[in-house]
Simulated assay, not measured.
Amino acid sequence: MRAAFLAFCLLSPLSACSIQGEDSPLSRTTWRFALIDGQPPDSRDARLSFEGRKVGVQVGCNRMDGPWRIEEERLIAGPLALTEMTCTRPAWDQEKAVNALLVATPRFAIEGNHMILQSSGHTAELVREGGPIERPTDTAEGR
């Protein structure tokens, strides 16, 4: 029954479903930032993780966390608490971009172990950590 509800919510563009916790495809996952607005992250530790009803974000030297849910193909995160340590300029700019992205209730798409978060002003490409690596089917080699 949960699988049917999840499929309906993710595939129906007109549904007003809200998915949280165990029913979400993001539940208990960690994602590494591959690109933030087209640029590689300044830190190799740039991660986004979903545990229970909390999202944790590490981009540079600061950490963000708060509640999250999925609603109508969008990731709703927040309000987010943010530490305020001084970072290098590239890391600081990327932290601000990711914070703005998450506050803007981005659309998200998952294909295999790849996820894209996109709002009107920012985009992040992420790769899932753990488990076997799956590549999207629409790659140059797979066409």
Rank of each mutant, 00 (worst) to 15 (best):
60 G>H: 01
7 A>G: 03
101 L>E: 04
98 V>R: 01
87 C>L: 10
58 Q>C: 07
6 L>I: 15
90 P>T: 09
26 L>P: 06
9 C>Q: 04
103 V>A: 11
132 P>D: 12
109 A>L: 09
54 K>C: 03
59 V>Q: 04
118 Q>P: 10
85 M>I: 03
143 R>S: 12
58 Q>F: 03
110 I>N: 00
96 K>R: 15
4 A>R: 11
43 S>N: 08
123 T>K: 15
15 S>N: 02
37 D>I: 07
21 G>I: 04
139 T>C: 13
48 L>D: 02
93 D>M: 05
94 Q>K: 01
118 Q>K: 15
56 G>I: 05
62 N>D: 15
101 L>F: 07
26 L>T: 02
83 T>S: 15
10 L>Q: 14
33 F>M: 09
2 R>W: 09
107 R>Y: 05
66 G>Y: 01
12 S>Y: 08
133 I>N: 04
90 P>N: 02
7 A>K: 12
76 I>W: 01
66 G>F: 02
116 I>W: 10
11 L>G: 09
113 N>T: 15
39 Q>V: 06
25 P>R: 03
18 S>F: 06
104 A>K: 11
31 W>E: 12
103 V>R: 12
95 E>C: 00
104 A>L: 04
127 V>N: 04
132 P>R: 13
24 S>M: 09
5 F>S: 14
127 V>I: 10
